[in-house]
Every structure is written in C-alpha cells, then in structure tokens.
Write a protein that binds this DNA or RNA. Structure first.
Length: 159
DNA sequence: GCCAACGTTGGC
DNA sequence: GCCAACGTTGGC
C-alpha cells in the first residue's frame, strides 16, 4: 500500500471556510472550482484516499492554516465546470470530455487557534515550504511529511 | 485598493 | 513557438 501523502489546499474563507466544512453533513465536501492545471494534476493523479490535507485560509486576517482534512474520494470530474450558471463555468469542459477534476475531503480537526503565515515564516523546519515561497499561488500543493508534522506540533502547542 | 508574481490567451 | 497583453491570486 502506498504511503500517505500530505497536501495543502487554499480557500478564501469568505467563499468557503473550515467552519463551512464543519457544518456539512458528515463534515464532507467536494473540492470544486480548481482551474489551474498544476493543481488539477495533483488532485487528479496523485491524491489518494487517506492522504492528509492542511486547510488554509487565504485572503483572511490573518492568512493561516486552520485545520486538517482527509481525502475520502479520489478524483472525478468537476461537474461545476460545465454548468453555465456556475461561477467556475469553463466552456471548454464538458461531461463527455471533462477538463477539471475534484476530490472529496472530510474534516479531521480544526485547530484551537489558526496558525498564521507570520508564525510559519519563523519556523526553521518550514523554510522551504511551498506556501511560504515568494509568489506562491498554487491552490493545491504538496507538503513534506516533516512539514506536516511540524505544523501539527505547532498547533498542539497552542492548547 | 495596490501591486508583484504568476498563468493563460491569442496574434503573428 | 514567441511574447505582449490581459486576467488572477493573494499578501500587505
């Protein structure tokens, strides 16, 4: 069995927050709306059931990692991409020939306190984290196991 | 609201 | 295939 992989997924809390996820039936949702090829490829090709996800609030005050989720369903077509009325509609994607994919995630944990970007920048073990790279905009990105573990430890210390 | 850093589009 | 113009992301 393949090893568990670690990821980080961004969302603007004004459009979908970790609290929204917590309010879902079974605390599950489909991660629709990704319209970037690199992010899509990670979701479509590499995410497996059981992988762990750091849940990140972008464009928030402050921007922060706010919790952890788990992949509960592997990639399938993002049906919102061929829905004309959807904000993420893409005329080049159809049900017959889907261009965009999504996964299902389930909430695992909301941190007692969010871990702000500022705090993360001051942690040596996270120096090379993709999230902290200047100009990093990827909304779905891989995280190293050490980075993931470090983040969890930091979250625990807050208690 | 500004703007740097991307990614995408489309004319050539 | 190049690259200018344009659009988006996201911290500040």
């Amino acid at each position: 069995m393949a090893a568990v992989k670690y990821w980080l997924m961004k969302t603007e809390p004004t459009s979908y927050s970790i609290q929204d996820l917590a309010a879902e039936k079974q605390q599950k949702t489909f991660w629709n709306g990704v319209r970037n090829y690199q992010a899509r490829n990670y979701m479509r090709d590499e995410m497996k059931v059981g992988d762990k996800v750091l849940f990140y609030h972008s464009n928030a005050t402050p921007p922060a990692i706010v919790g952890v989720a788990t992949i509960v369903r592997e990639s399938y077509p993002d049906h919102t991409s061929w829905d004309r009325d959807n904000k993420h509609y893409d005329p080049k994607s159809t049900a017959q020939n889907p261009r965009w994919f999504m996964v299902d995630i389930k909430l695992e944990q909301i941190f007692d306190e969010p871990l702000p970007l500022d705090t993360l920048r001051n942690v040596a073990a996270l120096k090379e984290m993709e999230l902290l790279r200047k100009g990093s905009r990827l909304s779905v990105q891989p995280v190293k196991r050490l980075e993931f573990d470090t983040v969890l430890k930091l979250a625990k210390k807050k208690r």
